[in-house]
Amino acid sequence: MHDPKGAAAPAASTGRLRRFRFALAAIVPLLVLWYVLTSVTHTISPGRFPSPNDVLQAARQISRGNGYAGGTLAAQVWQSSKLVLMGFAVAVGTGAPLGLLMGWSRRAEALLNPAFLLVRPIPPLAWIPLAILWFGLGDGAKIFVIWFAAFVPALINSYTGVRNIDPTLVAAARVHGASRLQLVTHVLIPGSMPMIFTGLRLSMQASWTTLVAAELVGAIFGLGHVLIVASLDIYPGMILYAMVWVGIMGALMTKALALLERRAIPWRG
């Protein structure tokens, strides 16, 4: 605490190394087990679950030439990531400010809360049919559905963030001469920042979940589309490979958010 630079740095790096070793210790045996069960003992039939070799083959196929299901891996991953980021941005851009507003102003809360309560219980995926009717199979429909899914956690958490701000801090800002705008920029937003980031993490997860589901139902491109085509082709290797990439992209974006959070909230830790 008193010497954050001197003492904490080496401790953190050895901690990271140790955690990496633990992660290896968990993953390597699983990979070995997977190889043994599918390719040595043949306990699991290749029709149900692909062997490592099947997955490698699928990986080779989708990264070359015309790829698979209408594009190469890079193109499919880019398509899905792009939609997730756009849907996420729209959802956070509307949800977080609305949450802040509802947390701050009783009047805004009274006005918006009924509509919110009505829309909230509708599962985001239930919007897919309407979205397809309105926007077709293109990008617009997916962004629309992601918006509904990712909007809710962004709103609720920023709302809670404002509500949890110590009222004494608001009083302190007022007695030291803060205007309404200064109250928002110096107290409200930084004060709810930790909760806003919790909302962003949940929104990011919701965005990926929803996108893949939407692409399964109706898309001409993207990782979800790869999954459904591979399923129709009875191609387990490709199914698993596409799933792995959904996992990788989701994890990368969550990690990016965590890095952003550490920069945005330097006072914590």
């Binding site: 801090l169 001469g177 006072w267």
Partner: peptide, 19 residues
């Protein structure tokens, strides 16, 4: 209302944790 002629020191310090 609050004014520039008066300042308050609170029991719980009420410092801004982010500053």
């Amino acid at each position: 209302g609050p004014g520039p002629d008066r300042a308050v020191v609170f029991q719980q310090f009420a410092l801004f944790p982010w500053k």
